Structures are given as C-alpha cells and as structure tokens.
Simulated scan of single mutants.
Amino acid sequence: MNAQERFITSPDGHQIPLLCWVPGTDSAEPASRVLIIAHGMAEHAARYQPLALWLNQRGVAVYAIQHRGHGPHCPPEQRGHYADEDGWQKVIDDLAQAVQHLRSEHPGLPLSLFGHSMGSFISQAYAQQYGNDIDNLLLCATNRIDRLKLSPYLGLVRLIKRSRGKHHRSPLIDRLSFDAFNRQFAPNRTGHDWLSRDAGQVDRYEADPLCGFTCTVGLWNDFIGGMLSLNPDQWRKDLPVHLMAGDQDPVGEMGKGFKRHIANLRKAGVCVASERLFEGARHELVNETVADQVWQHVYQCLVYSKP
C-alpha cells in the first residue's frame, strides 16, 4: 500500500504536499488517533511509510508533510532551499496549516506531532507558536541549542550568503556538518554511515535521488537562525514532550547534548513525559537495526495519558 497524496495551499500560493496513510478495512483497528510527521534535512516524507503502515495496524492515521525544498514535487534548482524570504516561518506555518486541516478531518481524535532531526527543531518552533493545537510532541534525533557554537556558525553562513548569494551550495558547510558527523565512524564504508548501523538502509538512502543533496546557505541561514529562536520558557507547560535518540548519534553529541536538552526543558518547566536513549543506535532511529523497538516506543508515546 502506497501513501495517498494531497495538497494544501498556503497563503503565499505554495502547494504543501501531505502524504497520507489511513487505516483501512484490512486494519486491526479504525483510526483512533492521528500522527503528523515532520521529516529531516535532505530526505523526504515517503521514507516513513514502513512506520506509518505499522502504526495503521494499531489504529493510528499517519500523515507526513513534505517541507519546502524537499520531496519529488520540488524543482531540482529549489531542492534544499526553503524560500527566498522568511523561509523558517513559512515552513512552520505550513505545518500549522497541515495540523489545522487534520483537525478538521479527524475531529475529536488526539493529534500528535513527530519531528525527526531538522523536523524536531521545526516541531519545537511549531510548539512554541502553536502548542495549543496538538496533544503530544515527539522529538527524535534532536539536540540542545548550543548558542556558543551555533552563533559563530550562523555568522559564517551569513558571510558566505553575502558573498555568494542565498542559493549557493557550500562544500565548506557540508564538511563542517554532515561530513564531520560521518568522520566519527571512520573508516567509512559510505558517506552516510552516521545515519544507521543498518547497511541496507544507508545504501537505500544513498541510492535515493531525493536524499543526501546539499542545501543552500539560504536554508542554513533560516535553519540555524530558527534554532536560535527556540525558547522553551515560551512553550505550553502542560504539553507532553517525548524525546528519543541514539546514544551514537552525532547530532545529539552521542547522547550528551540530548541529555542537556532534556535538563534545559525541565528547568523551563516543560512537561518531559518520557526520554529514551537507544544503546548503539545512530541518527535515523526509525531505520535502525532496532527499528522494531523504536516503532513500539513511538506507539507507546502516542497512547501516553497524562497522570
């Protein structure tokens, strides 16, 4: 079963693609809850189909948004680029519009938001602005906001953007980010060993033309600036937040940054409903060798009831 696809029109005329997996007549249960997925950087929503179909069998209607600059409908010249102006806010507002659409389609059902990596930061920004519109927030492969590191990194990105333009794709930025992550697993079999211990999943990522592209400095400017705008003091305090990561994920500083993020959320009074580090797992938890455990954990987070 492949996903159905629909499009929602944003105020600026952008067509927001939404992939839909809804329990059908062959499912064990009818839809009793809703999950919307915000994917990571340089990948796309269809990669979450195995998880979505597994959740369908447990009564979860799953939807995955294609972020701007990603997915099969994005022109190649725009791939890896949010927008020329206000890209970060537009991506957040796209997600808000998708959530409103799903609320109207599934009235009364609990709705959870799952964000992976880049999507986890988009989801946090969404929760900061629209937290009353969701019932549960799941953050996967996320990290603390290290301002001492991110601020000079943003300065470098803006310097390159001024000299080369917002559509420039910088090999230097790639070396400082994804290449640096991968070097932690040297000697490397591929350029993306850091994603998963499952070699088959890494090979599928590398063979996918919609994955692994270099993003523009315009996107990096929006993304890092967006991360620096996150402030959990402004979050809705009774929103249950579930955090999960691999303890060998370089994005989460091999678990150290992930734990500091949780401590910072608790200090801000955020309701940290659950936290879990998967031993030995790398960045893409849902595609790891322990994917069955991860999927089960995701489901447990979805059915979480506040005490």
Rank of each mutant, 00 (worst) to 15 (best):
D86Q: 14
G269E: 02
P307V: 15
D249M: 08
Q293G: 05
A96Y: 12
G269W: 06
V99N: 01
N56M: 06
G24N: 11
A83N: 01
P152F: 15
N221Y: 14
R144K: 06
S123A: 15
V298D: 08
T9G: 04
L210E: 07
L243K: 02
P110D: 07
C211A: 07
V290C: 11
A125K: 01
G115Q: 11
V294M: 06
D247S: 06
Q201K: 10
C74P: 10
R68P: 02
H242S: 01
G165I: 06
A96Q: 13
K259A: 08
D292N: 13
S229Q: 07
R197L: 09
P50L: 12
Q300W: 11
L139R: 08
Q248I: 01
H283T: 03
E253Q: 06
W54I: 02
V286N: 12
C215H: 09
M1C: 07
A207V: 02
R79M: 14
F7E: 08
W54E: 04
I160K: 06
S10M: 13
H73T: 11
L302S: 06
G119S: 04
P23V: 00
R47T: 05
F258I: 05
R175K: 10
G119I: 00
A28C: 00
A83T: 02
L156C: 15
F185P: 04
N221D: 15
A52C: 10
P75H: 12
V34Y: 06
V251K: 08
H106V: 08
L195I: 03
G108E: 01
N231T: 11
L154N: 11
Y205K: 14
V157C: 07
H168W: 08
Q97I: 06
F178I: 10
G252L: 03
K306S: 15
N231A: 15
K149Q: 13
V99L: 02
C271E: 03
F181T: 10
R6H: 05
H73Q: 02
P72W: 10
L138W: 05
P30H: 12
P11M: 13
A45N: 02
E253W: 05
G69S: 12
D133L: 03
N136L: 03
M244P: 05
I37N: 01
A186K: 10
R144C: 05
E105R: 09
V34S: 01
I173P: 00
E105T: 06
F178V: 05
I173K: 01
P75L: 14
R103N: 09
